[in-house]
Nucleic acid binder design. Structure first.
Length: 113
DNA sequence: AACGTGACAAGGC
DNA sequence: AGCCTTGCCACGT
């Protein structure tokens, strides 16, 4: 039986909050989960998601705005399909974080006040 | 117990 | 724009 680190749960909890049509980076998720600087852990936690979870893992991408799987892999295509379905646009395989980044928009809203 | 490997990121060049 | 470190943490050998 596999032991589940406590940090996984907070990471999963955080990812669950990313709204539809938005994305967050591994680093941003880590920071929100109070695990600043531990982006790798986020990837690891998502890799270990239970099968049936409804957590939107596909809304997490890397800091370059790209999907962190190799382009030919099945999971890469699956993730891209999920994102496109939420009207997220890819330009030369990249996502515009200014436009679709969850946190970026939060910051903008705060600035606007 | 050391070492290599990941769905990472930031900084240097 | 890429490629190469370095820091990071959990796991499997």
């Amino acid at each position: 039986m596999k032991t589940i680190p406590h940090s996984y749960k907070t990471i999963w909890q955080t990812v669950k909050q990313i709204p539809k049509g938005k994305v967050a980076t591994y680093g941003q998720v880590a920071e929100l989960a109070d695990l600043k600087g531990q982006a790798r852990l986020v990837g690891y936690a998502l890799h270990n998601l239970p099968e049936k979870s409804k957590i939107p893992w596909y809304r997490v991408i890397n800091s370059k705005g790209k999907i962190s799987f190799t382009n030919s892999s099945k999971t890469f295509k699956l993730q891209r399909r999920f994102l496109v379905k939420e009207c997220i646009v890819f330009l030369s395989n990249k996502i515009d974080l200014e436009k679709y980044g969850w946190l970026n928009n939060i910051q903008k809203q705060w600035k606007a006040i």
